[in-house]
Design a binder for these strands. Structure first.
Lengths: 214, 214
DNA sequence: ATCGCTCACTTGACATCGTTATATCATATA
DNA sequence: TATATGATATAACGATGTCAAGTGAGCGAT
């Protein structure tokens, strides 16, 4: 039953606006204070509501976080999609690494939640079978690019497993990013700028995996 | 004033035993349930105490965790120390990566806390100046080995910054480990065995950073 | 015009968490 | 035996995520 009368439409629009304002407030607080330290009550009071009001728009705190992450990973997916036009899989891989790292460093809270926090791979979609997990898309981009690189003979013959290679590439960039995000403010380590380390990491991995020495 | 009488000695020994039993119980629960989900009350009741009794032996929950981690990283340090005899820095680097990964996969809870959780680099030692951070030691091993490798001309001339190179190596192994620890049970990704991926990662990084193509 | 319904939102509460202040009680010392 | 110490328990506090029950405004139908 779709809404008919203008009043119902307005009511529905207002609900959507409230929902969006919850998301906005939550994002602000997550970025500033971190997800763990952000309270339902704090999110609500920031927009003049009570904590329990949030539960009319989101199942629980995790669902709220999840929605923010899905939005961000959609934008990550778009950034990676733009790179699809690069035909040479090796060049594309390099660009993917850069885009991935830039996203992670620009959205540290969401990155922490999505890639540095264990998830219950939950009851999934309403249909029953696993909902489309957006973080898979990022992996799929890398996996497909690596597969093309293997097919094109760009990599050494002992590195023929596309999953292993893709996971290695992913882990390389993720390693630099996650170390930086957890220990970047540790003054006891003389940190090299993470963006540079990532560029070096990608170059070194590509060179080390390449078939010829070129 | 050192304890004199046998009674005091016994009392002190009993206190130490209680303290140790707290550590043991905590470690068990941390490994099974994870650190976050493990409750002070659960730790205490596992050994027949009340939660508040723990606070006579440890300042707070973090101090308890910290002590467990220090113990584990001492053993990590020992494992790495054993590798010091390998003279060739490149071979040593390879061995360090393996030892590090084996430790991480064998002590996932502690690894999560030490390397995947932000820390307040706290009020430190009782003396005032920063307490000796055991996780630095692991980094120092890598840093020194990489420095030797650079000095020995093993690496390409554009990779002359030992911090960048050490952080890259560290991040490579950490990336595989941490991805596995957070997403290893995700059925939507066809995971390659992490130990193999780590071996490949180290080999690829070393080859990609090496001066000659050998 | 008013009744009743829907539904966004509030109130008040609950269980649980880490933690603290205070009480208890056994033991060692005098 | 009296006193002091120190290990443990009891009770409670504030904060958190969450739920059950209430409130009240706005809508449609009579």
């Amino acid at each position: 039953m779709l809404p008919r009368s203008p009043s119902l439409v307005r009511r529905e629009r207002q609900k959507a606006e409230t929902r969006q304002s919850i998301l906005d407030a939550a994002r602000d607080l997550f970025v500033v204070d971190g997800i763990e330290a952000t309270t339902m009550r704090a999110i609500a009071s920031k927009i003049g509501y009570t904590a329990t009001a949030i539960y009319h728009h989101f199942r629980d705190k995790d669902a709220l976080i999840e929605e923010l992450c899905v939005a961000d990973f959609t934008s990550l997916g778009k950034a990676m999609y733009k790179i699809g036009h690069i035909v040479n899989p090796v060049d594309r891989l390099r660009a993917l690494g850069t885009a991935y790292a830039e996203f992670a460093l620009a959205n540290p809270s969401q990155y922490r939640f999505m890639f540095m926090t264990p998830h219950r791979h939950g009851p999934v979609d309403d249909n029953g079978h696993p909902a489309h997990k957006p973080d898979e898309d990022a992996y799929q981009f890398v996996f497909q690019t690596v597969s093309e690189g293997i097919a094109g003979g760009h990599f050494r013959e002992e590195l023929m497993n596309p999953h292993e290679l893709a996971q290695m590439m992913w882990a390389g960039v993720h390693g630099v990013v996650s170390l930086w995000l957890t220990h970047g403010d540790d003054p006891y380590i003389q940190w090299h700028p993470p963006i540079e380390t990532i560029q070096t990491m990608v170059s070194v991995m590509i060179r080390g995996a390449a078939r010829s020495s070129a």
